Simulated scan of single mutants.
Amino acid sequence: MAGWTLVKVALLSDCYPPRLGGIERQVHDLAHELVRAGHEVEVFTATTGPAGERGGVIEIEDGVTVHRLAIPLPNGLPVNPFAPPEVRRRLLAGRFDVAHAHLGVVSPFATDLVRVALGVGLPVAATVHCVLGRWVPVMRAAGHLRRWAGRGVALSAVSRMAAAQVREAAGGARVGVLNNGIDAAWWAAGEAGAADRSGADGIHVVTAMRLVSRKRPLALLGALHEARRQLDPSVPLRATVAGEGPQRRAMEAYVRARDLDWVSMPGRLDREGLRRMHHAGDLYVTTARLEAFGIAALEARAAGLPVVAPAGTGVDDVVEDGVDGLLVSSDAGVAEAVARLAGDDALRRRMRAHLRQDPPRQDWPATVAATLDEYRRAGAR
């Protein structure tokens, strides 16, 4: 196992594109980055394909083989309790070197497939992508993470905060930290010119999120409102909140009620649209407290934006307080930090200069290398 150079990997995930979400996107990008590095990758998922493909259909997308093991369920729910026997057959036939499961709080498909992979003798890595929070006692009582660790599964989570929770749920087992990855150079491309306009036409605060209560978008608007109150009235301030979701109507009502006509909500943006938004911005802000990692903050940091965020989340792995942005303890702290950065051109420019010179360590080559280390750890055990 230590002599591995190129490997054949089975990625196991309930969710995969065309579903939208953080796990889906990371598993997709990891698969393609592993292939780009010369490895073989096959994805096993309970998500239907773009045209509703399911029932074991196999697709090839840019060198990645995708096994669509979905069954017809309402809203395309990515669950298939009948998949294990067929996946077992395919894993045995595929001569894989390692299996890598990607898990949220509730991941019945990937959980079943960890057992299948162990049953056919594969080394298994398992990465938790979510905040367990109040589910820690439940998962500790269920015991599967502890049992997996006892059978040699290399457990990991996407941040130090998330890893601590997984460790507790797994009864103190070793849990690695496997940060998500991005193409840092792509996000930075064109940023140098954008940085030169910092504050030229007022301060532009940007953010991107799903407009759901877990991301606390109303708290974000409240922090922006308070930051505007604290900021010198002579400093123009505007904000762009990119994203879509069920909280939009409540947010629009909040904006109308408080005359926040300087806040725009353009809806969901694709990656190119997000990059353009970041390059037109001066700082990035989030009030989310249940961030296992904070991929949106990492993308903003890579694009050269100082980040304001609550401390004690996965964003701690992305942002060094006072260097890459400001980490705070409360919503009031978010408002104060936004007002401080908006009103201090020298601080903002100093941070942006640092961000241009010091790309994030979660670039894909480093993330792929760390992933392979987890595979070796699984194999060694």
Rank of each mutant, 00 (worst) to 15 (best):
M1R: 11
G3Q: 10
S13L: 08
S13H: 11
I23E: 00
Q26N: 11
L30Q: 13
E33I: 01
E40N: 14
E53R: 12
G56A: 08
G56P: 07
G56F: 14
G63V: 02
R68M: 07
P72M: 09
A83H: 04
P85M: 14
P85I: 14
R90V: 06
L92E: 15
A93P: 09
G94Q: 07
L103K: 04
A110N: 08
A110W: 06
V114S: 01
L122P: 03
V128C: 12
L132V: 08
V136S: 13
V138R: 10
M139T: 11
G143K: 06
H144M: 05
A149H: 05
G150H: 01
L155M: 10
R160G: 15
A164N: 10
A164H: 05
A164G: 12
E168K: 12
A185T: 14
A188S: 08
A188N: 05
A195H: 10
D196Q: 06
R197I: 09
G199P: 03
D201Q: 10
A208Q: 00
S213P: 14
R214V: 15
L221N: 02
L224F: 02
A227D: 14
R229S: 15
L231I: 14
D232A: 06
S234K: 11
L237H: 00
G243Q: 11
G243I: 03
E252D: 15
A257M: 09
W262P: 13
W262N: 14
G267F: 08
G267C: 10
D270T: 02
E272N: 10
H279Y: 06
H279L: 06
D282Q: 14
L283N: 05
T286N: 00
L290A: 15
L290F: 08
L298Q: 14
A300W: 09
A302R: 06
A303C: 05
L305D: 02
P310H: 13
G312L: 09
T313Q: 05
G314F: 05
D317F: 11
V318S: 02
E320V: 15
D321I: 04
S330P: 13
S330Q: 13
A332T: 09
A332S: 14
G333K: 04
G343K: 01
R349I: 00
M351K: 04
A353D: 08
Q357I: 00
P359D: 08
P365E: 05
A370H: 01
T371Q: 02
R377C: 02
A380Q: 13
